[in-house]
Amino acid sequence: MSMKMRALRIMLMIMLATLYGLSGVGDLARAEAEDSTPQIQRAAKVNTFNRLLKPPSERNLPPAEDGIHDPTSEGTYLLQSPREAFDSLPKSNSGNRVDWVKALEEKYIEPRFDRFDPEKKPMVFDLNIVREVKGSMPDVVYPHKQHTEWLDCSNCHPAIFIPQKGANQISMASILMGEMCGVCHGKVAFPVSECRKCHSQNKTAEAKN
């Protein structure tokens, strides 16, 4: 009996420890574990710092811990961990926490432009489009250059953006709903939290008056 119990206890302890490691709730949760009084647990849970944000410990987790891959599937354990891939890439403050444009510009990554031909190069189109915005935010500068490094003209024109000055009505509301720029930005390209990356040209003094 005692041997069995001891084995059971050790097993439970290990599971407990692993789970704490996995959950990544941080120091607060670890403090909870040491003090098992239920009241403290409740208080700590509702009053955690930045409870709606993801702490650094929960970013770029390996597939088995990321909550979107099934940890009971053997395939999950063969997949690459994002942390391993992102380690050598330039960092950013949002999305995958990788500055993909810089990673491409500075050749940290060399993604193919053609799936068969590793030598094929994109036709980069260097034209900035300045869009004056109505509100107090700086005007938007849209660089074709960085976009044509990744994309083909047909990806955006004419389905998403009509290639004609003044023909496209763009609003932040539509972008947030996943239209216009929001087809990519806010899903896979840098998210809409990076206001200044697009609203990058301060209004001139005359324009303000």
């Binding site: 891939a85 993909w100 193919r112 432009f113 053609d114 990806n155």
Partner: peptide
């Protein structure tokens, strides 16, 4: 997406 964009540009899957 992250794994694929390290190896291919968007255009490969979304245009070709």
């Amino acid at each position: 997406h992250w794994f694929h964009r390290v190896r291919f540009r968007c255009k490969v899957c979304h245009a070709d």
